[in-house]
Write a protein that binds this DNA or RNA. Structure first.
Lengths: 241, 241
DNA sequence: CGACCCAACTGGTCATGACCAGTTGAAGAA
DNA sequence: TTCTTCAACTGGTCATGACCAGTTGGGTCG
């Protein structure tokens, strides 16, 4: 008897292949609350050992896509993109969640930033800064908009670069000034008309609003505000004493 | 040959025992950057199979205490520069901000909690738990509502105590089980009618919603959801590499 | 009828053993 | 000397197989 959905031997580990297929199954043919086939059934279906099945399922449980209940089964969790609290660019963040990130640049200009930003970036009154407004998507679904200002005094020529590439990567590789610290506040807010339109939600819907200043060794490089769709994004954090 | 630090057979899973010992080792006798014994050495040292060693080490890697490098070894990570996101009770939290906290108990009962809570608290299907719904005020202004379940298996008699006093203080002083770790997720949500009424805001207003599990040394004690008025509360955090 | 028990599920744990894939340093070749 | 090779580490993957521990529903016994 051959397994109905056998996995390939090869470069990609079987538990990775299985993880991907199960994730796909959760997104498409199953709904939150539905039970997955039992682990032993998955062994037969995909022609792998239980070790491999438990590995694949375990990853999805860790990521929050599945929930295991001893004696009952494994179930599809309520869907939520979930971000650990870390210092990562949007691209890294999404890839860590197994999603494909895309960025649409809505606005790119060099201008004098608003007073708050001038203060946060340690600029003088009439210094110019790079202003980017970007829409962020994961697997082609809008996740967030962010409105960011970059310090051109510390990052000369940044406005000449390809803005579709990762800014964080440029800071690290071209300027040797990676963002190694950030201060941010998070609050719940209503989406205004502009944000709502771009994110594809109703104006007034709740969004997570981040206000963040990124530093390289105490030099402020970035001041950004971001608005995240609350139905597709949540913060996850561990607290210890 | 007997393993030098053999683990006990018994109620606690070996990978849990090993996880605890390795965590202890990291905190006491090792420094960030130090290598752990290799997985095969750990097998011999603790008299367990590699499955178990990988399980225990894997948990600590997930938690960020260890880092595995293929071909080189497993190393103690830099201690997470965790934020000022404090592990504090509402009362401590508010006093730190110079406000006077008050609590109104809206509901107190002993009941079988919903499935999610059963899982989070590590209960069995029909175990009962203490259910508290409380309104929190600072300087007499409503700040948040929280809906919490407490583990009565680990905290027998908690339901007999004065619920207006600080629960956290009782956990610490009466049970010697302070909450020393918590996992929480944060998202933006709309206030439903109940929450809106109690908080004195319009239904549909954005609120910060916390979902939190509090632990004492890996024993889950508390599962709580909280809704915070977004106009009176925001999260502040520092992120470092 | 109701209480109990048990078989047949579910996931949880663990040992054994094999082989693959990076890393490193020492032995040998140029 | 310097470069190459390779053996002996490291962690990564996977199969097999056993038994434990919750859950559930159906059947039996009182």
């Amino acid at each position: 008897m051959v397994a109905p959905h056998a996995l390939r031997d090869g470069a990609v580990a079987k538990h990775e292949q299985l993880r991907a297929r199960l994730a796909e199954m959760c997104r498409t043919s199953l709904s939150p609350g539905d039970a997955l086939p039992s682990e032993r059934q998955l062994c037969d279906l995909y022609g792998v050992s239980r070790t491999t099945v438990r590995d694949a399922v375990g990853q999805l449980v860790t990521e929050g896509m599945l929930v295991r209940i001893h004696g009952k089964g494994t179930f599809v969790a309520e869907p939520h993109a979930r971000s650990q609290l870390h210092l990562a660019s949007f691209h890294e963040d999404m890839r860590r969640l197994g999603l494909t990130p895309t960025t649409v640049v809505l606005l790119a200009e060099t201008a004098v930033p608003p007073p708050v930003t001038v203060v946060n970036l340690g600029l003088r009154s009439r210094d110019q800064a790079l202003h980017l407004r970007r829409l962020r998507l994961a697997d082609n679904a809008p996740i967030s908009v962010d409105d960011a200002w970059y310090n051109l005094i510390e990052l000369p020529g940044l406005d000449q670069l390809d803005l579709h590439a990762s800014i964080y990567q440029a800071l690290e590789q071209r300027y040797q000034k990676p963002v190694d610290r950030a201060e941010q506040t998070v609050r719940a807010a209503e989406a205004d008309d502009v944000v709502a339109t771009v994110l594809g939600i109703r104006p007034g819907s709740p969004v997570l609003r981040f206000d963040r200043v990124g530093y390289h060794q105490d030099t402020p490089l970035e001041h950004a505000q971001s608005w995240y769709r609350s139905d597709r994004y949540e913060l996850q954090m561990s607290l210890t004493q």
